[in-house]
Design a protein around this nucleic acid. Structure first.
Length: 272
DNA sequence: AGGCGTTCCTGGGGGC
DNA sequence: TGCCCCCAGGAACGCC
């Protein structure tokens, strides 16, 4: 479920509650939730497990400790909440106990979500591409990334090793906004359209973060939910009229993913 | 290199 | 109501 804006929203909510707290331990409810370490490994170094920072990299929530980072990936259905005395939700996969009697709950219906332990960001940085909201994500760099490859544009945008943070929803929204058909071949798209795609990606992600994401995220903190779902333009709009041209939005399968398209507005580029 | 199918899981919705 | 099938916003892996 969560893409960059949803993960950023989670981080924004958790930050003030976690920074400065100490982690007492991690309770494992679903054994596979810890991907590359065992709970006791947290105590290998004489770390007091104080949370120094919480931030996002790609779709990971990074909890910065003294000697490690915990990287939490929500995958499809992961959710984080902070609770005190309430019972754990049904699909809790792990619980991080904090020094103020609060608990960070990792709830995950489909159990795809994982927690990783690393010394620093090197491993993640080596596998994940540029942050689309960073200053270095220039229009020129974006064009280079796209035009030097001969790939399906939707698949390329979903590839986290090229650009990190986009998922199925925001890719469809960005391609619609820039008038590019998702089955276009990357290297054959015009530079003008790529300029528009670059702008669309940034503005859509920013809008979505401002709306606290698309997904309904259930924070025990304040109960706020994502509002971007009401602002989606094509995703999930099969049979609706295109906001541009009134043609019907259709649903396709592209790269194995449900894909929403206005065939009239979104030009397909297949050759130079 | 890139595309494709499979896999990890549970639950919701549509069709009958 | 019940059952079955398909679908789901992620991503790693192996194979061609």
């Amino acid at each position: 479920m969560p893409e960059l804006p949803e993960v950023q929203t989670v981080v924004n909510h958790l930050k003030s509650q976690l920074i400065g707290r100490r982690i007492l331990n991690i309770e494992i409810i679903w054994p596979k939730v810890l991907d590359n370490f065992k709970p006791e490994e947290l105590f290998t170094y004489k770390s007091n497990l104080k949370v120094n920072d919480v931030f996002r990299r790609a779709k990971f929530i990074i909890i910065q400790l003294d000697f490690y980072i915990l990287a939490i990936h929500l995958r499809m259905t992961g959710k984080l909440h902070i609770i005190k005395d309430e019972p754990f939700p049904k699909h809790t996969s792990s619980v991080i106990n904090l020094d103020n009697n609060y608990k960070l709950i990792f709830e995950d219906v489909r159990k795809f979500g994982r927690i990783y332990l690393y010394r620093n960001l090197d491993v993640i940085n080596s596998k994940y591409g540029i942050e689309p909201l960073s200053n270095s994500f220039s229009s020129k760099l974006f064009q280079d990334l796209i035009l030097t490859k001969k790939r399906n544009i939707k698949g390329l945008l979903l590839d986290q090793s090229i650009i990190s943070g986009l998922g199925n929803i925001y890719v469809d929204e960005s391609l619609w906004m820039s008038g590019i058909h998702p089955n276009s071949i990357s290297c054959s798209i015009s530079k003008l359209k790529l300029k528009r795609l670059h702008e669309s990606i940034i503005s859509i992600l920013q809008e979505a973060i401002a709306s606290k994401g698309t997904t309904i995220i259930d924070f025990s903190v304040n109960g706020e939910s994502g509002r971007y779902s009401s602002q989606l333009r094509v995703y999930g709009k099969k049979g609706h009229q295109c906001l541009n041209c009134k043609n019907n939005i259709i649903k396709l399968r592209v790269c194995g993913r449900g894909t929403y398209v206005c065939k009239k507005c979104q030009k397909i580029y297949t050759k130079r």
